[in-house]
Design a protein around this nucleic acid. Structure first.
Length: 613
RNA sequence: GCGCCCGUAGCUCAGUUGGAUAGAGCACCUGCCUUCUAAGCUGGUGGUCGGGGGUUCGAUUCCCUCCGGGCGCGCCA
């Protein structure tokens, strides 16, 4: 289903990988070797007049024992065309464009696997060419299909009048990482915080506000007080039919523009947004727009009108709903776009929002970073939008429900406090920082206290972010302080430590990592550790593509972890600050690029990095 | 009842158009600090990929079925 909805996105032009890279004075090398190999294979297939509709190169990272990349596409092609796979493989290899042999070695293995091994000179050329963030961005922009497309990323989206709690963590962290990955790939990104600022809960809250307000509490911690009032109102309405009716009247007054209720509502939102911003500041999140549900109040009538006019929406039990007769479930499970009391709900505003994104932002894609439990809603939304846009002659953006699982506690139940309350994000981040601080005090006691505090901040918050990002987002995520902050294995601290160690080398040698003259006179890569590190470095573009395409940040995390591991091995066996200037220069270049990719990668994921720890 | 997701080493997880001997981390055992940060590195133990069937040169991956777990399904968002 998602597939059909995505079809108006331009196909990834495999040839992109062959575009000319920036001039480096060295051999020209592509940004992404894997896509360049795939393009070369398709060129060979075309020379051999193979059926392009059947042949897919299937280039992927190889087991290092077999080389850097492998292409398996010859096998299925030979099977379908009833040829000897080995013989076909030989023909394909001999038809490869000459340009490719300049930078890699090709071998045929087994029944017809093609193995590609990058030449050391190619690795060196890549390291020389992509030597700062700007050149990496330029490379990504040339190779990534997302470049120059407009993406609206819808994430975080908490409800006002409540504090952000652990349930809001994943959307914020994953959404920010995705926004940054897209931005890095050359896309135009609009970060939209679609806050819930117009729910029916406001009636109850205003009811309680007018009767139970604790002025002192409002002064000292307004959000806490709003949250208390909401609970008071909710309980009262549950207990009493009369209260419920009064609360509904407060909502009607609000919606019809009553000055007093509107003022209360504004105050609530103001306070809420300020509180959210404190969390966002800690997580490095900066939205481009915050267009909540209230913004679409006056835009839902058009949705009702159009959907009714084209016969998509119908009246049912007093409500306006959409059914999808061709769908096994949605032919009977309604998509309610207007409640029987005439009020809008999130289906109405989501439809209006999508139209706004299409028309106002000219969105090519809308990415919804929302809990997987809302997959029915998203499917119905997308299906409805697809028909609506098609019948009104509008271009449908690519629509993605970038779903994620629940944050679970150690008992495998949704994470809560001992008393069963939601854990506030504020408290969670505070605890992360405190836990990191005690570790810093133990490991880095010699550093000045204010720097220790800074390190604790970066490590603590980064650990929370990274723990969330490094796992496949679609599964539930087991929250464990010990694993997160234990600083071993695939954690933020391990990566930050590698960064700090590299920075320390440059500090000791009084060199700037971005000063490329440090690697002047470098000799050729020689030792296994050097070559392994260089090979891993040159695979960054593939990791980026693998993360951005399916919007899965953990692919990038895994790459960074492996890169840091490769660096740590290198660091242990090869001293950088050696006497021989040629050896030192080539190792310094490896360090500089490792630093560049680790820092760039972590920043793309939304983490901060450190000079010392 | 209908539907979606998940099940891989003791634990937490990678493994995505079907590919080479299924990989990491933690834990456990083993070595390595007078040399650039040991929050590190090296080696090792550990698997009926939930069970069964099917598709084929080849299945953790695709299909069927069963078991187990999570979630969703008319006026909250």
């Amino acid at each position: 289903m998602r597939h059909q909805l995505s079809r108006n996105v331009p196909q990834n032009r495999r040839l992109r990988g062959l575009r000319k890279p920036p001039l480096s004075g060295k051999m020209p090398v592509p940004f992404n070797f894997a896509t360049a190999i795939a393009a070369a294979l398709q060129e060979a297939a075309s020379v051999l007049e193979m059926d392009a509709s059947i042949f897919a190169p299937e280039v992927r990272t190889a087991d290092p024992r077999h080389g850097d990349f492998q292409a398996n596409g010859v096998l299925p092609y030979a099977k379908r065309t009833q040829q000897n796979p080995r013989a076909l493989a030989e023909k394909v290899v001999s038809a490869l464009p000459a340009s490719i042999s300049a930078w890699c070695k090709v071998a045929i293995a087994g029944p017809g696997f093609l193995n590609f091994t990058l030449q050391p000179e190619a690795l060196e050329a890549w390291l020389t060419t992509y030597n700062d963030e700007a050149s990496l961005r330029a490379g990504a922009k040339s190779a990534q299909p997302e470049a120059n497309q407009t993406f609206v990323v819808d994430y975080s989206a908490p409800n006002t009048a409540k504090q952000m709690h652990v349930g809001h963590l994943r959307s914020a962290v994953i959404g920010e990482a995705i926004a940054r990955m897209l931005d890095f790939s050359g896309a135009k990104v609009i970060r939209d915080n679609h806050i819930g600022d117009w729910g029916t809960g406001f009636g109850k809250l205003i009811w309680a506000y007018k009767r139970e307000l604790d002025a002192a509490a409002l002064e000292s911690d307004p959000l806490e007080e709003f949250e208390r009032l909401y609970k008071v109102g909710n309980r009262a309405a549950d207990d009493s039919e009369a209260v419920l009716i009064e609360a509904r009247q407060e909502l009607v007054k609000l919606q019809s523009g009553d000055a007093e209720n509107l003022a209360i509502w504004r105050r609530i939102n103001e306070v809420s947004l300020a509180a959210f911003q404190k969390i966002y500041d800690q997580l490095g999140i900066q939205f481009d727009t915050t267009l909540g549900e209230s913004f679409y109040n006056d835009k839902v009538d058009q949705v009702y009108d159009e959907l009714t006019k084209i016969g998509l929406a119908e009246e049912s039990q007093g409500a306006l709903v959409v059914f999808h007769p061709e769908h096994p479930r949605f032919k009977t499970q309604p998509f309610m776009i207007r409640k029987s009391d005439g009020a809008a709900n999130y289906a109405s505003t989501d439809l209006a929002t999508l139209l706004y994104r299409r028309e106002h932002f000219d969105a090519d894609a809308a990415i919804y970073v929302i809990d997987s439990r809302q997959s029915d809603h998203c499917q119905q939304l997308f299906l409805t939008a697809q028909k609506w846009f098609a019948r009104t002659g509008r271009r449908l953006p690519r629509l993605e429900h970038t779903s994620f699982g629940t944050v679970l506690g150690e008992n495998n139940k949704p994470l809560k406090t001992r008393s069963g309350e939601n854990i506030k994000l504020r408290d969670l981040l505070q605890e992360a920082i405190e836990r990191a601080a005690s570790l810093v005090a133990e490991k880095s006691a010699s550093l000045p206290p204010e720097e220790q505090q800074h390190i604790a901040n970066v490590v603590g918050v980064g650990s929370v972010q990274y723990a969330d990002l490094c796992q496949n987002r679609s599964s539930d995520y087991l929250f464990s302080w010990d694993k997160m902050i234990s600083l071993e294995g695939n954690t933020a601290a391990y990566l930050l430590y590698a960064v700090a160690r590299i920075r320390s080398i440059f500090r000791k040698l009084e060199r700037d990592p971005l000063d490329t003259s440090a690697s002047d006179g470098a000799s050729a890569l020689a030792t296994p550790a050097e070559i392994n590190l260089a090979r891993k470095l040159a695979k960054f573009p593939e990791a980026l593509a693998g993360a951005v395409g399916p919007l899965r940040p953990h692919v990038l995390c895994l790459y960074l972890f492996e890169l840091a591991g490769e660096f740590s091995s290198f660091y242990t066996v090869e001293k950088v600050a050696v006497e021989d200037p040629a050896v030192r220069a080539r190792r310094l270049r490896l360090c500089a690029r490792t630093l560049l990719l680790l820092e760039t990668g972590l920043h793309v994921l939304g983490l901060r990095t450190l000079a010392r720890m």
